[in-house]
Computed example of a mutant assay.
Amino acid sequence: MKKPTARDAIVKTAARLFYKQGYSNTGINQIIEEAGVAKSTLYQRFRSKEDLLMTYLDTTGSANISALTNAASTATNPKDKLLAIFDYLQERTTQPEFHGCHFLNLVYEMPEGEERARIEIKKQKDNVRTLFAQILKPIHQEQLADEIYILFEGALIGHKTHHDTWPIQSAKNTISKLL
């Protein structure tokens, strides 16, 4: 097995810390210490904490859309594909390491003017909307993608607020009624 590079260690550590304790509450010195690298090593690979954040958002976004696509692939028809995504979400939220949506957690703590991160978060969220539209295309219901997306986001926020899966189940019930 290939030994992780210093860059990999930095990204993995930053991702864990940004997700668990937030971007604003994570300092470069903590990332350096927990990744076991020198400050110069970090700055050779990332010009700034924001550059590290952008890598985190891109990596997490790719993993997220892949997981949602894989969940959808377990079903054969559009309705069941969407419900499978929400089943995946429900299962994911019961895991102890789940601390909410990576992107929603960050967007709420980003101050005005942090447009680079907001643009990347929007891109990742638009990828989810696009996935829903692709799933609905075979039944000519792409126009429902935004409604499904709002249910998805609402389920994430509801879970974060209530620490319960009922918002996800409620979203699934609504999808069943829509389709």
Rank of each mutant, 00 (worst) to 15 (best):
A145Y: 02
H140L: 13
G36Y: 08
L179K: 06
R129H: 09
P78L: 03
T41D: 10
F132V: 09
V128R: 12
L144M: 12
P4K: 11
K123A: 12
A67F: 03
T174R: 12
L136T: 01
Y43F: 15
V11K: 05
T161L: 13
A75S: 06
T76F: 10
R129V: 01
D58A: 15
I31K: 00
K20S: 12
M54H: 06
A155Y: 12
R116E: 01
L178Y: 13
I139D: 10
Q21P: 01
A67Y: 05
D51F: 00
T60R: 06
I32Q: 06
Q90K: 09
W166D: 06
Q21K: 09
T60V: 10
E142M: 07
M1L: 12
S66M: 08
R129W: 00
V11N: 01
V11P: 03
F98L: 09
E115W: 06
L106E: 09
I32F: 08
D80N: 09
I85T: 07
I150V: 14
R129K: 12
E33Q: 06
E91A: 14
P4Q: 11
A15W: 00
I85K: 01
Q143R: 07
K160E: 10
Q134P: 14
T130I: 05
W166Y: 14
A38K: 15
L151F: 10
N29F: 12
T60Y: 04
F18R: 01
R129S: 04
T69V: 14
Q90P: 04
E115H: 04
Y56K: 07
P111K: 12
V37T: 12
I10M: 06
A63D: 03
S48R: 02
A72Q: 10
A67T: 02
P96G: 14
G27L: 09
Q95L: 14
K122N: 12
T165H: 12
I10Q: 06
V128D: 14
Q30F: 08
L89M: 05
K2Q: 05
E115C: 03
S66T: 14
N127W: 01
S176P: 03
T5C: 08
Q124S: 11
I65L: 15
L42T: 01
V37N: 08
N105R: 13
D146L: 15
F98Q: 15
G154L: 13
A117E: 01
I175S: 07
K160T: 04
P111Q: 14
I148K: 05
F152S: 06
I150A: 07
G36D: 09
L89Q: 03
M54V: 09
K122W: 13
H99S: 07
Q143I: 08
A145W: 02
A9M: 13
N173M: 05
R92P: 02
F132T: 06
Y43D: 10
V11Y: 02
K122T: 13
T5Q: 10
L83W: 08
A133S: 15
E50Y: 02
C101N: 13
K2I: 11
E120V: 05
K81L: 00
T74L: 04
A63W: 00
